[in-house]
Write a protein that binds this DNA or RNA. Structure first.
Lengths: 204, 204
DNA sequence: AGTTTCAGTGTACGCACGTTCACTGAAAGG
DNA sequence: CCTTTCAGTGAACGTGCGTACACTGAAACT
């Protein structure tokens, strides 16, 4: 049987899912409480039993979306062989994750510069955390003697390229994927090779 | 004296400026015809004398914003000395332009993933043109034997980093600018060095 | 068994929106 | 000078919005 809190949780999920879907067309800014309620099958005022405002809903979606992103990076980490293969694996995992979870990636891309200030800031903060996390991963690569500041600069560059690539994947047809993969691999390779050579040159 | 068409042009400009300003808070999606009209000091219906719809207004703003971007790249081109100095000059010009023309850069950043499909697509098309243009500039650097396809991959990477940096500049306080400059220079350097080394290695 | 809690209901409100239409009055043009 | 053009007016419309309020009825608790 279903307890009261179970049912509440199910409705909450339905609201999140409906919002995520509706946001794809209009962005969070163009999302109305009434649309969501209609989609879920509840009366508009019942929305307030679950969220104080659309912004709070947005923050929950940010949380959820970045969980998905973190799952991705965890997926890359396990089984990380040679430096050359890391590039291929990273790109493959990115493409796979974005296509499997279009909604969350699209949400992040959109709301990064989107309408609500509080949601926008939350996305940015999460990206900063994500960059920091990635820079720790980079520290494990054979890039000895890099300062953590420099690793974050590289990390920032890589995350930026990742976002751009994700957006490409989101708008692409399936037949364009090989080209996108090739481009992403080349770019990641350029960044890593560039970082290694530039730094080793500077230290000479 | 002021002719009738002069006055019309002035009102049109006022609408564009008002829209550009109001968009900073809400995005183009959250912009209402009535808000714009109130700001300009005309009655809502008079808006239609100048634009068929908010989307058309948006397209005009896209046009305008990318003119500003192209002016920037022209500014970089003139006086381009050694490869090392190109990096410094490019970053300086970018920072300067973004700060002098926040509104247009912010508009591009926002509407790239923003609400209206037609405006979003227009921004993307303009970015593709811009990438192509940049790849022609890159071809003049001492990167012999690069295919134009590879140059566009590099160009795509650089433009992506440029957008990310622009967004940083837009949200930054003046005191954070030196750090952003440093980061942008490092990243641009990494990309160029990486591209040179990776390719020369591949050709060996 | 009796009471409390609370997710969801239904009505009603005032507001801002885009768009319509017939209009005005001064500039442009014959 | 008389006519045409046309940027801007002003009232009116239907719609969807967020939110308030009093409510119901079943689950949870004592």
């Amino acid at each position: 049987m279903e307890s009261r809190s179970d049912k509440k949780e199910r409705t909450r999920r339905a609201i999140l899912d409906a919002a995520l879907g509706l946001t794809e067309d209009t962005g969070l800014a163009g999302l109305s409480l009434r649309q969501v309620a209609k989609e879920v099958g509840i009366v508009p005022t019942a929305f307030y039993r679950h969220f104080d405002s659309i912004d709070q809903l947005g923050l929950a979606l940010v949380e959820e979306s970045f969980s998905s992103l973190r799952a991705m990076i965890r997926d890359v980490r396990q089984g990380s062989p040679s430096l050359g293969q890391i590039v291929d694996r990273s790109v493959d995992v990115l493409v796979e994750h974005v296509r499997a979870d279009r909604a969350h990636f699209g949400f992040i891309a959109r709301e990064q510069s989107g309408g609500s200030a509080v949601v926008r800031d939350a996305v940015r903060r999460q990206f900063e955390l994500f960059e920091r996390e990635l820079s720790l991963d980079l520290a494990r690569l054979p890039m000895d003697h890099w300062s953590s500041a420099d690793l974050q600069i590289l990390s920032n560059l890589i995350v930026g390229a990742m976002i751009t690539t994700s957006e490409s994947i989101l708008h692409a047809e399936a037949r364009d994927l090989p080209e996108i993969r090739h481009r992403a691999r080349s770019q990641l390779m350029m960044m890593i090779v560039g970082a290694l050579n530039w730094k080793s040159r500077e230290q000479t």
